[in-house]
């Protein structure tokens, strides 16, 4: 199953962020040349979260002892032993990570053909909201959910929300059918967050 982990625009080159896939915590990062990767959020050395690490060129380094990993997840450098070639067994846990139509998707493996079709849509913005799918359903009458993808109309423009479970809440990744409506849809999204959080309390 593919899980949306954000919008491409939220993850610039040289940046790492936390993500998830079905309860597994992830580090998702983009190399300086733009390559995307998603790994288990746990350094094979001593378990530090890799999402706290730093990107240099085409590598991600752990913030604890600086162990450095290439885009394939293999450890290429152990700073405490600069002349040692790290054994091939030292490898981050690699997930499949792709982006399509401005959305970053993570899956265990599988054909990209199964990605939801969002062609023609433009990315608006991602938000986090404290609430569950039931609250979201009450807050979004008229929207139709197909798995994690919710579609509807807002002020005459089509809107897609890709929903991601995020701890006690949800991540909502919004796209719309026309670039000219991005500001209006972004404002509408603020209202949705408020509504969901009110609904979640009732």
């Amino acid at each position: 199953m593919w899980v949306a982990n954000g919008l491409s625009q939220d993850l610039p080159s040289g940046v790492v962020m936390a993500g998830n896939w079905q309860g597994a915590e992830l580090a998702i990062w983009r190399s300086v040349s733009g390559r995307l990767a998603a790994w288990g959020d746990r350094c094979p050395h001593r378990g530090m979260r890799l999402s706290h690490g730093f990107v240099r060129g085409e590598t991600l380094s752990c913030i604890y002892h600086g162990w450095t990993y290439g885009s394939d997840g293999a450890c290429s450098k152990i700073p405490a032993h600069p002349t040692m070639v790290p054994p091939a067994a030292i490898k981050a846990e690699v997930y499949q990570c792709v982006e399509a139509d401005g959305v970053i998707w993570v899956g265990p493996a599988g054909p990209e053909a199964d990605l939801p079709d969002l062609s023609g849509m433009v990315a608006v913005r991602s938000v986090s909201v404290l609430g569950d799918v039931a609250a979201l359903t009450r807050a979004l009458p008229g929207f139709v959910a197909d798995g994690a993808l919710w579609r509807g109309q807002v002020g005459g423009v089509s809107v897609s929300l890709v929903v991601q479970a995020r701890g006690a809440g949800l991540g909502l990744h919004a796209l719309c059918g026309a670039a000219a409506h991005r500001v209006a849809v972004s404002r509408w999204l603020d209202g949705v967050v408020q509504l969901v959080e009110q609904e979640a309390l009732t």
Binding site: E25, H45, R46, M48, R49
Partner: peptide, 22 residues
């Protein structure tokens, strides 16, 4: 660092962690 290590408890048996000479 300490609040962001996984797992929370210290593993006493070799598991997923890989130590080196350091």
């Amino acid at each position: 660092i300490l609040e962001n290590q996984i797992p929370r408890l210290l593993p006493l048996d070799p598991g997923k962690e890989i130590p080196t000479q350091a």
